[in-house]
Lab assay of single mutants.
Amino acid sequence: EIHIRTNGEEQARKVYKMLAKRNYDVKIEQHNGQWVVTAS
């Protein structure tokens, strides 16, 4: 499982799309105001 911390919604969405293209199961979560993308 991969966790990627991003500094904002826009970046989180870019990372989300990139990983989704590679057939990862991707989730975006917010932790303490930080956007974290989780891929498995």
Results as ranks from 00 to 15, higher is better:
Glu1Pro: 11
Glu1Lys: 14
Glu1Tyr: 15
Glu1Thr: 14
Glu1His: 15
Glu1Ile: 15
Glu1Phe: 15
Glu1Asn: 10
Glu1Arg: 14
Glu1Met: 14
Ile2Trp: 14
Ile2Asp: 02
Ile2Phe: 13
Ile2Lys: 04
Ile2Glu: 02
Ile2Met: 06
Ile2Pro: 02
Ile2Ser: 02
Ile2Gly: 02
Ile2Ala: 03
Ile2Tyr: 08
Ile2Arg: 04
His3Gln: 12
His3Arg: 14
His3Ala: 08
His3Thr: 15
His3Val: 15
His3Gly: 03
His3Ser: 12
His3Leu: 13
His3Phe: 13
His3Lys: 14
Ile4Leu: 05
Ile4Tyr: 13
Ile4Met: 04
Ile4Gln: 02
Ile4Ser: 02
Ile4Gly: 01
Ile4Arg: 02
Ile4His: 03
Arg5Cys: 15
Arg5Ser: 07
Arg5Val: 14
Arg5Tyr: 15
Arg5Ile: 14
Arg5Trp: 15
Thr6Leu: 14
Thr6Pro: 03
Thr6Ile: 12
Thr6Met: 11
Thr6Glu: 03
Asn7Ile: 09
Asn7Glu: 09
Asn7Arg: 12
Asn7Thr: 11
Asn7Phe: 12
Asn7Trp: 12
Asn7Gln: 10
Asn7Ala: 11
Asn7Tyr: 11
Gly8Trp: 12
Gly8Pro: 02
Gly8Phe: 13
Gly8Tyr: 13
Gly8Asp: 15
Gly8Val: 12
Gly8Arg: 13
Gly8Ser: 15
Gly8Ala: 10
Gly8Asn: 15
Gly8Leu: 12
Gly8His: 13
Glu9Phe: 14
Glu9Pro: 11
Glu9Arg: 09
Glu9Ser: 05
Glu9Thr: 04
Glu9Ala: 07
Glu10Ile: 10
Glu10Arg: 13
Glu10His: 08
Glu10Asn: 09
Glu10Lys: 13
Glu10Thr: 09
Glu10Leu: 11
Glu10Tyr: 10
Glu10Pro: 06
Glu10Gly: 08
Gln11Thr: 08
Gln11Ser: 07
Gln11Pro: 03
Gln11Asn: 06
Gln11Ile: 10
Gln11Leu: 10
Gln11Tyr: 11
Ala12Lys: 01
Ala12Cys: 15
Ala12Gln: 01
Ala12Pro: 00
Ala12Ser: 03
Ala12Phe: 02
Arg13Leu: 10
Arg13Gln: 07
Arg13Phe: 07
Arg13Asp: 03
Arg13Ile: 08
Arg13Ser: 04
Arg13Gly: 03
Arg13Cys: 15
Arg13Pro: 00
Arg13Thr: 05
Arg13Glu: 05
Lys14Gln: 09
Lys14Leu: 11
Lys14Pro: 00
Lys14Gly: 04
Lys14Phe: 11
Lys14Tyr: 12
Val15Asp: 01
Val15Arg: 03
Val15Ile: 15
Val15His: 03
Val15Glu: 02
Val15Thr: 03
Val15Met: 08
Val15Asn: 01
Val15Cys: 15
Tyr16Pro: 00
Tyr16Asn: 02
Tyr16Gly: 10
Tyr16Ala: 15
Tyr16Trp: 06
Tyr16Gln: 06
Tyr16Val: 06
Tyr16Ile: 04
Tyr16Met: 13
Tyr16Thr: 03
Tyr16Asp: 00
Lys17Asn: 12
Lys17Cys: 15
Lys17Phe: 10
Lys17Ala: 13
Lys17Ser: 09
Lys17Asp: 12
Lys17Pro: 01
Lys17Ile: 12
Lys17Val: 11
Met18Ala: 10
Met18Gln: 07
Met18His: 07
Met18Ser: 06
Leu19Ser: 00
Leu19Gly: 00
Leu19Pro: 00
Leu19Gln: 00
Leu19Arg: 00
Leu19Asp: 00
Leu19Tyr: 06
Leu19Glu: 00
Leu19Lys: 01
Leu19Phe: 09
Leu19Ile: 02
Ala20Trp: 07
Ala20Phe: 08
Ala20Asn: 05
Ala20Lys: 15
Ala20Val: 13
Ala20Thr: 09
Ala20Leu: 15
Ala20Ile: 13
Lys21Ser: 12
Lys21Arg: 11
Lys21Phe: 09
Lys21Cys: 15
Lys21Asn: 09
Lys21Asp: 13
Lys21Gly: 10
Lys21Tyr: 08
Lys21Ile: 10
Arg22Ile: 06
Arg22Asn: 07
Arg22Trp: 14
Arg22Phe: 12
Arg22Gly: 05
Arg22Glu: 06
Arg22Thr: 05
Arg22Leu: 15
Arg22Lys: 10
Arg22His: 10
Asn23Gln: 08
Asn23Arg: 08
Asn23Glu: 05
Asn23Trp: 14
Asn23Ala: 08
Asn23His: 14
Asn23Thr: 04
Asn23Cys: 15
Asn23Gly: 15
Tyr24Thr: 04
Tyr24Gln: 04
Tyr24Asp: 03
Tyr24Gly: 03
Tyr24Phe: 11
Tyr24Asn: 04
Tyr24Ile: 06
Tyr24Ser: 04
Tyr24Leu: 09
Asp25Leu: 13
Asp25Gly: 06
Asp25His: 13
Asp25Met: 13
Asp25Thr: 14
Asp25Ala: 11
Asp25Asn: 14
Val26Asp: 00
Val26Pro: 05
Val26Ser: 02
Val26Lys: 01
Val26Ala: 05
Val26His: 01
Val26Thr: 03
Val26Ile: 05
Val26Gln: 00
Lys27Thr: 08
Lys27Trp: 07
Lys27Tyr: 07
Lys27Ser: 07
Lys27Pro: 00
Lys27Gly: 04
Lys27Arg: 11
Lys27Gln: 07
Lys27Ile: 07
Ile28Trp: 02
Ile28Gln: 01
Ile28Ala: 02
Ile28Pro: 00
Ile28Ser: 01
Ile28Met: 08
Ile28Glu: 00
Ile28Gly: 00
Glu29Thr: 12
Glu29Pro: 00
Glu29Trp: 14
Glu29Phe: 15
Glu29His: 09
Glu29Arg: 08
Glu29Ala: 10
Glu29Tyr: 15
Gln30Thr: 07
Gln30His: 11
Gln30Met: 10
Gln30Lys: 10
Gln30Trp: 10
Gln30Pro: 04
Gln30Ile: 12
Gln30Asp: 05
Gln30Leu: 11
Gln30Cys: 14
Gln30Ala: 06
His31Leu: 13
His31Trp: 13
His31Asp: 09
His31Cys: 13
His31Val: 13
His31Glu: 10
His31Lys: 12
His31Ile: 15
His31Met: 12
Asn32Val: 04
Asn32Lys: 07
Asn32Gly: 10
Asn32Phe: 07
Asn32Glu: 09
Asn32Leu: 07
Asn32Thr: 04
Asn32Ala: 09
Asn32Gln: 08
Asn32Pro: 02
Asn32His: 07
Asn32Ser: 06
Asn32Trp: 05
Gly33Pro: 01
Gly33Asp: 06
Gly33His: 07
Gly33Val: 03
Gly33Leu: 04
Gly33Lys: 05
Gly33Ala: 04
Gly33Tyr: 03
Gly33Ile: 02
Gly33Glu: 06
Gly33Asn: 06
Gly33Gln: 04
Gln34Lys: 08
Gln34Arg: 08
Gln34Pro: 01
Gln34Ser: 08
Gln34His: 12
Gln34Met: 12
Gln34Cys: 13
Gln34Asp: 07
Gln34Trp: 14
Gln34Ala: 09
Gln34Thr: 11
Trp35Gly: 00
Trp35Met: 01
Trp35Ser: 00
Trp35Val: 01
Trp35Glu: 00
Trp35Phe: 05
Trp35Pro: 00
Trp35Asp: 00
Trp35Gln: 00
Val36Lys: 03
Val36Arg: 05
Val36Leu: 09
Val36Gln: 05
Val36Ala: 04
Val36His: 08
Val36Ile: 13
Val36Thr: 06
Val37Ser: 00
Val37Gln: 00
Val37Met: 02
Val37Trp: 02
Val37Leu: 04
Val37Asp: 00
Val37Arg: 00
Val37Ile: 09
Val37Thr: 01
Val37Phe: 02
Val37Pro: 00
Val37Lys: 01
Val37His: 01
Thr38Ser: 07
Thr38Gln: 04
Thr38Asp: 02
Thr38Arg: 09
Thr38Ile: 15
Thr38Glu: 03
Thr38Val: 14
Thr38His: 08
Thr38Pro: 00
Thr38Phe: 09
Thr38Tyr: 09
Thr38Gly: 02
Ala39His: 05
Ala39Gly: 07
Ala39Gln: 03
Ala39Arg: 04
Ala39Ile: 15
Ala39Val: 15
Ala39Phe: 14
Ala39Glu: 02
Ala39Pro: 02
Ala39Trp: 13
Ser40Glu: 05
Ser40Lys: 13
Ser40Asp: 04
Ser40Trp: 13
Ser40Gln: 08
Ser40Ile: 12
Ser40Ala: 07
Ser40Phe: 12
Ser40Asn: 08
